[in-house]
Design a protein around this nucleic acid. Structure first.
Length: 573
RNA sequence: UCCCCGGUUGUGUAAUGGUAGCACAGCAGACUCUGGAUCUGUUUGUGGGGGUUCGAAUCCUCCCUGGGGAACCA
């Protein structure tokens, strides 16, 4: 039979399913979405999920996604954040073309829409202050037993002002005739509504604060609930995708669209991303930066896109991760190991291999001809022959990894110990003949071995099995480098679970950064550009740091290689 | 208290009244000049009770449980 008779299961997440239905049933022809960041912080991996959903859903239906800055709070926003956000979205691999919009460009239109609501008797200027509004809303009232309950709210005494008076008052608000906080414009909905957000929400507040784009032109600013649906409408957004916390705002979203008689966008909510061992809340990330717990927004331990980039994460790995975690409405906590897995998988295919020694121990080949240096051939990437080969210098004095030698080997250890044979990667098979030890401290100072000249390149002509292969660097030709090893910023899987009376900062790990300044690498490492990702054989993937300079090389460990020895060692303990 | 939304192996996520699958993690093995990579095999799940049905993760109902909301922030 032809393949066309076979049922091909095409999986659509619940959002794409809803969009497909809207198209099938004729509610919309094209799909238009938007990614609406507020420029008050740098983007993190949680935003990356939103970007992936917003741009991805549009792309699935041959639609378009706008980039819109939701900038209606002048107290927190700044153009430096706009630049950082644009750079990060582009880096992740998304293009908004010429569709770069700002809610602040809609202020005049929004003002007119507010006047429309006033004329329809659906909005009024209120003279109540912040405290009074809260009290009239009828919330947080403790009863005799000190249990809070939610009574119906009471109407503001200013609720029934006439249309003309409201229009005049609102114009005066805009004109700056009243002090900050003295009046608001409120939607007239229902002060007894069970959804507290529907109890006459504030649409405009007075705030004399220069805005990074509109300067001092305005002293009244629209609130999110009023502004967002209408901004969506102005741009013809068909599907306004946002996180679960806005679910309860949807009736309001719909109310403003209906009564302003504008383009009917549809809001659909999905669960935001949570990751183990980190925090993804702008408020908390900003504290880490401000209280200098990290070096900045782009500290390689930060879950920001800039931090991940500096750490060595690739956009491909992040997008792969986002695709794997899926989209749903269940609150979830994704294991950060999945992110790490995606990075390893991507870099395994692409990163060139090099040898570097993090904690050097001297290895002397006693039968090596004095002063001789050989150039040996090494494969750049066993996963992909197109990467070619390179030559690395080899001599009788090498650096090896301190943990690759044991005076007394633990069970199943097949690296260097007295009497044992190992292969020096791409070089020779050597036999450990002894070691020098500081009698006072017990520290191993130097390991001695002899090499087998018949095994050049690492192959034994007699086909003998050598179980262990270790990496090395020729001491005289090596370049010095600093390796920065990172662990999770928080040891706790859920750092947001704060101990009684403490702060999430108490959960900060003191092992999240280890700087190894005495590391040694093969000479070619010195020529790499900042941002380049490589694999240090047997150790992990490393990325040349943005601060790395000739003579002061810095490599960030992006992620370690899977370490099955660690498991064996742990088990036999 | 009230309102809204959820609960499928350890973690995510499918199955849309008809065989509970996939990925990661875990475990076991094969292979290997990275204890890497790759490959093979494999353990573990529908929150609970009742109902509808030939048949329920799916529909109804009660309970349990988790998250969110009650800003002149977004």
């Amino acid at each position: 039979m032809s393949e066309s008779t076979e049922k091909t299961a095409v999986y659509l997440d619940f959002i794409r399913e809803a969009v497909a239905k809207d198209i099938a049933e004729g509610r919309t022809r094209e799909v238009r979405t938007r990614f609406p960041p507020e420029p008050n912080g740098w983007l993190h991996i949680g935003h990356a999920k939103a970007i992936y959903v917003d741009f991805g859903v549009a792309e699935s239906f041959a639609g378009r996604c706008n980039l819109r800055f939701d900038d209606t709070n002048p107290e927190k926003e700044d153009s430096s954040y706009v630049d950082a956000i644009k750079r990060d979205v582009r880096w992740l691999g998304y293009d908004w073309e010429d569709r770069e919009y700002y809610a602040s460009d809609y202020y005049e239109k929004l003002y007119e829409l507010a006047r429309l609501l006033i004329r329809k008797g659906l909005a009024y200027v209120d003279d109540l202050d912040e405290e009074q509004i809260k009290e009239y809303r009828g919330t947080n009232v403790p009863d005799k037993n000190n249990i809070t309950y939610t009574p119906p709210g009471r109407n503001s005494p200013y609720r029934d002002r006439g249309v003309e008076e409201n229009l005049d008052l609102f114009a005066r608000m805009r004109a700056g005739q009243y002090p900050d906080g003295s009046r608001t414009l409120r939607a007239k909905i229902d002060m007894a509504h069970p959804n507290l957000l529907m109890r006459d929400p504030v649409m405009y507040r007075i705030r004399r604060e220069p805005h990074y784009r509109t300067g001092t032109i305005w002293c009244i600013y629209p609130m999110y609930d009023f502004q967002h649906p209408l901004s969506d409408a102005i741009e013809g957004i068909t599907h306004s995708l946002c996180s679960l916390e806005y679910e309860i705002h949807r009736p309001l979203y719909d109310w403003f669209i209906e009564h302003c008689e504008v383009f009917p966008s549809r809001q659909i909510e999905f669960a935001r991303l949570n990751l183990t061992h980190t925090v993804l809340s702008k408020r908390w990330l900003i504290r880490l930066v401000q209280e200098k717990k990290v070096s900045g927004w782009d500290d390689p331990r930060m879950p920001t896109l800039a931090g991940l980039r500096r750490r060595g994460y690739t956009p491909e790995a992040i997008r792969d991760f986002l695709g794997r975690i899926g989209i749903a409405k269940t609150d979830s906590m994704v294991d950060i190991q999945l992110l790490e897995h995606c990075l390893r998988e991507d870099l395994n295919k692409r990163a060139a291999r090099y040898m570097a020694v993090l904690r050097p121990l001297e290895l002397v080949i006693d039968n090596w001809p004095e002063g001789r240096v050989e150039m040996l051939e090494a494969v750049n990437n066993p996963e992909d022959p197109h990467h070619g080969k390179r030559l690395i210098p080899f001599s009788g004095k090498l650096w090896i990894e301190r943990e690759d030698f044991q005076e007394v080997p633990p069970p199943k250890y097949f690296r260097l110990f007295p009497g044992n044979q190992v292969r020096l990667r791409y070089a020779y098979i050597v036999t450990c003949t002894g070691f020098d030890k500081d009698p006072a401290t017990g520290e191993i100072l130097r390991v001695h071995c002899s090499y087998d000249p018949e095994t050049r390149g690492g192959d034994a002509p007699d086909n003998r099995k050598v179980k262990g292969t270790i990496h090395w660097v020729s001491a005289d030709q090596a370049c010095s480098l600093e390796a920065r090893l990172y662990e999770h910023l928080f040891e706790s899987e859920r750092p947001m679970d704060i101990p009684e009376g403490g702060s999430f900062l108490d959960n900060l790990s003191d092992k999240s950064l280890e700087r190894l300044r005495g590391a040694k690498g093969e000479p070619a490492l010195a020529a790499l550009e900042p941002g380049t990702s490589v694999q240090f054989e047997r150790l992990g993937y490393f990325c040349v740091d943005t601060d790395s300079k000739p003579g002061a090389l810095i490599f960030n460990r992006s992620v370690s290689l899977r370490d099955s020895w660690a498991k064996i060692a742990k088990k036999s303990m």
